[in-house]
């Protein structure tokens, strides 16, 4: 329970996001407790009782200044602490030699690798501990690349290519939902990201990525219309 309901984090920058999350959690938690305690105390202490007369006051400038400055300072500090993580995640791209091209469509993720014509539907394979570049596109509406355990989210906008990156520190199979409403099949538009150890990844790449020609027959049918039940590896609706 100490992670406060956050799913396990497996990416490098996810740690910074979680840290900020917990920091804000603490700040807002303390603020809330103070405000709520004051409120409840006042409600009890100053409830209407016979003979009581309310204090006749219109305010207090000193107090006014204090409770303007203090929250402002807290918020400024918070902004300053948020900036580095943001610029690391979204404003810079560490160099990398693993590039994945993702084109979203209603209602699938289409994954391509350079040097290969193979299109993978709703699955992506990447090596662990390596910076991975994602070139994100959409061919119809806006979708959103969301991997909860990577703490990564980015909308895919038709008409432009958006470059993103992530680095995963733990091999495994991670769920990869679409987070932006994209039509009736939005719910259930989901893929899997397989993070392999370096050796496994090499093996997988050797088997799947060099074959330029045989792309067509192995790729899954491109227009799986029904959103929910055709996902590979997805647990069908109950």
């Amino acid at each position: 329970m100490l992670d406060w309901w956050l799913p396990e984090n497996v990416s490098t920058y996810g740690r910074e996001i979680d840290w900020l999350f917990h920091l804000i959690y603490a700040i807002t938690g303390v603020t809330f407790i103070l405000v709520a305690a004051a409120l409840i105390a006042f409600l009890i202490m100053y409830r209407d009782r016979p003979g009581r007369r309310a204090r006749y006051t219109h305010g207090n400038t000193t107090l006014e200044i204090v409770w303007t400055i203090v929250p402002a300072l807290i918020l400024v500090v918070l902004t300053a602490l948020s900036a580095p993580a943001w610029s690391k995640i979204k404003m810079s791209m560490p160099p990398s030699d693993v590039v994945v091209e993702v084109t979203a469509k209603q209602f699938n993720w289409q994954v391509k690798y350079p040097n290969s014509d193979q299109v993978f539907l709703d699955e992506m394979h990447v090596p662990v501990n390596k910076v991975v570049h994602v070139h994100l596109k959409s061919q119809d509406v806006i979708h959103s690349f969301f991997v909860p355990q990577f703490r990564m989210k980015q909308d895919a906008v038709p008409g432009r290519e958006i470059k993103q990156w992530f680095e995963v520190v733990k091999p495994g199979k991670y769920e990869w939902p679409c987070a932006e409403l994209c039509g009736f099949g939005h719910s259930g538009m989901r893929g899997w990201i397989y993070v392999h150890s370096p050796e496994d990844y090499k093996k997988w790449a050797a088997e799947n990525l060099t074959a330029k020609a045989k792309a067509a027959e192995t790729a899954k049918p491109a227009d799986a219309a029904k959103p929910a039940d055709t996902k590979p590896g997805g647990k069908a609706k109950k």
Binding site: L39, D48, R53, G59, T79, S82
Partner: peptide, 28 residues
């Protein structure tokens, strides 16, 4: 982000003034 954080300040002022209004009152 900067502007969004700033806009919380006037809301803070309001919240504390509401608390100040209750303080020392005769609450019905």
């Amino acid at each position: 982000t900067v502007t969004t954080m700033i806009i919380a300040v006037p809301s803070a002022i309001k919240t504390f003034n509401w608390l100040g209004t209750l303080w020392g009152g005769r609450i019905q």
